[in-house]
Design a protein around this nucleic acid. Structure first.
Lengths: 249, 249
DNA sequence: CGGGACTTTGAGCTTTCTCAACGATGGTGG
DNA sequence: CCACCATCGTTGAGAAAGCTCAAAGTCCCG
C-alpha cells in the first residue's frame, strides 16, 4: 500500500471509511477529485499526530484503527473528549490552531487533507460541506451527552454508559449464548484511557467494571474483551435506575 | 413591537443580534429574505421553549436575554450544557428530535425559523451554511473545553473558569478603580443554574465563590454582580496554579 | 521464561455532597 | 410605604463517593 501518496481509486474503494463519514457524501468520480488532495498516512499505536495549539494545517479521515482526542491541563491532568473509529473525520478548528490533541490508540491509517485544498473541494462539492455540517452537529450533540455524564452521573453509571455507547459505536458483535443474547465488545483502549474519558481514575473504572461483573451485568476474563449480558441491557433501559438496581443486588 | 410576525427591516436593523451569529452572514437585502421566514417570539423568564425529545421543528436566533440549554436524567438530575446570549443561534439537531431542552433565564426575545423554510434559505445563500458550520464547530470545541472542566477540574477551578469565561462571553465591563483594573460581571443565572452548569451543588458553588472572595480574587455584595480583581486575572493565567495559590493564601 | 506495563484489590483520606439552619432579597398586598 | 412571605443564597456539620497510595496479580512480548 502506498504511503504519503494520494490514495488510488482502488484504495478508496477498499477503504473501511468509504461508506461512512465524509467520503460517503461523494460519488466514485467525485471521490477521485477529493483523493487528489489526500495523502495516506500511517501512525503507530501510542503516537500523537495532532498537538493542541499547533497550527491547524490538516483534516484527517481515519481509515483504520482507533484514535483518542484529548485536552490537557498544565499539571498533566487529561480529559479524553472522544474516541474515534474508522470512517470518522477529525481536525475541526475555529481558529488557526487546533484546540485538542489526537493520539493513535492502535496502529492507525488515515487520509490527510491539506486544509486549503479541502476548502476548494468544499466549494466544488457543496454536498461535502453539508455532510461536514451534519458531522459536526452530531459531534456537538454527543459532546452535550458526555457533559451530562461527566457532570451528573455516578462512577458506575459512567462506566455502564460507556460500555453501552462503545458497543454501538464500535459495532459490537451480537451472539446467541445457550440461555441469552450477549454483546461482545472489544476495548482497544486501556483502563487509563477509559478513566480519562469518564473523568475518573483507573482504579475506579476497574472497581466499577468488577462490580458490574459481580452483579451479573457483564462478563470478562480479559481486560480488553467484555460481554454485555441480558441483565445489562435491561438495567440500561431508561426505565430502570442502574444504581438502585445494583444497591438491591 | 410586533410579536408572532416576521421582523421588519427596521426591527432587524435594531436587533442586538444583527451583527453576530447567523444574521451577520447576510447583507441587508438578503437579510430581508431570511426575515420572511422568521417570527418574533417572546418567552418570559423561567419558561422552557424547547423540550428534549420533542420534534425539532424550528431554529431560534436569540435577539435579547439569556437562555440555558440543558439535558436531564429521569430522576431529575440536570446538566446545563450552555448559556446562550443575544445574537446566538440554537436548535441544532441530528435527527428529527431535539436532544436538549432550552429555557429562558431572563425574559427573552427571539426570532424563530421554520426548519424547512430555513433549509431553503441555506440553498439560496451558501454563506449562511458556511456560517452555520463555523458556529457549530465553535460550539463543539467549546463543549470539549467544558468536558475538561467537568471531568478534571476542582470545584474552585470550575467556578473560577466559569467567571472568567462568562466575563468574556457576556462582554463584562472593565473599569479603573483607584488602585486596580476590575472587571464587572453580571450573572443573570442563579447559583443553582451555575451548579448545574459546573456539575456541582449550589452549596459548593456558593462556598467556592466565598473562598475566592476571602482570598481577594473577586468581590461581591450582591449575588448577581461580581467583580474580578487584579489578583483573579493573575491567578487565572495559564502559568499559575489556582489551587496551589489559594492553598498558600 | 522473565520483565515491564497494565489491571485489580485493599485501606485510609480528601473533596464534595447532603441535610439543616440561618440570612438576605425581592415582590406583593394590605 | 411597609411588613410579610417566598425564594434564593450562605454557612456549618456530618456522610459518602471517589481519590491516593500501596501491593499483589495478570498479560504480553521478547
Amino acid at each position: 500500500m502506498s504511503l504519503g501518496q494520494s490514495p488510488t481509486p482502488t484504495e478508496c474503494g477498499a477503504c473501511d471509511a468509504r461508506h461512512i463519514g465524509l467520503c460517503d457524501a461523494l460519488s466514485n468520480e467525485n471521490l477521485e477529485s477529493l483523493a487528489h488532495v489526500a495523502q495516506r498516512i500511517f501512525v503507530p499505536a501510542g503516537k500523537a499526530f495532532i498537538e493542541e495549539d499547533s497550527k491547524a494545517s490538516h483534516f484527517y479521515n481515519l481509515s483504520r484503527g482507533n484514535v483518542s482526542i484529548f485536552k490537557s491541563l498544565a499539571d498533566g491532568r487529561r480529559q479524553i473528549t472522544g474516541f474515534i473509529g474508522a470512517g470518522h473525520f477529525l481536525g475541526h478548528a475555529d481558529s488557526g490552531n487546533y484546540r485538542f490533541s489526537a493520539e493513535a490508540i492502535t496502529d492507525v491509517r488515515l487520509c490527510r487533507f491539506d486544509r486549503a485544498a479541502l476548502a476548494n473541494e468544499f466549494i466544488k462539492f457543496p454536498d461535502l460541506k453539508s455532510r461536514l455540517l451534519e458531522i459536526v452537529t452530531h459531534e456537538m450533540l454527543s459532546a452535550q451527552e458526555q457533559m451530562l455524564l461527566l457532570g451528573r452521573k455516578t462512577a458506575l453509571e459512567r462506566v455502564a454508559s460507556f460500555l453501552s455507547s462503545w458497543a454501538k459505536q464500535s459495532g459490537a458483535c451480537q451472539t446467541q449464548n445457550s440461555d441469552q443474547t450477549i454483546l461482545l465488545i472489544e476495548l482497544p483502549m486501556s483502563r487509563g484511557d477509559i478513566a480519562d474519558y469518564l473523568g475518573l481514575t483507573t482504579e475506579t473504572v476497574s472497581r466499577s467494571l468488577s462490580q458490574l461483573k459481580r452483579n451479573g451485568l457483564i462478563d470478562f476474563h480479559n481486560a480488553r474483551n467484555v460481554t454485555l449480558l441480558d441483565a445489562f441491557r435491561a438495567s440500561n433501559s431508561p426505565h430502570i435506575d442502574l444504581a438502585q438496581q445494583l444497591a438491591r443486588a
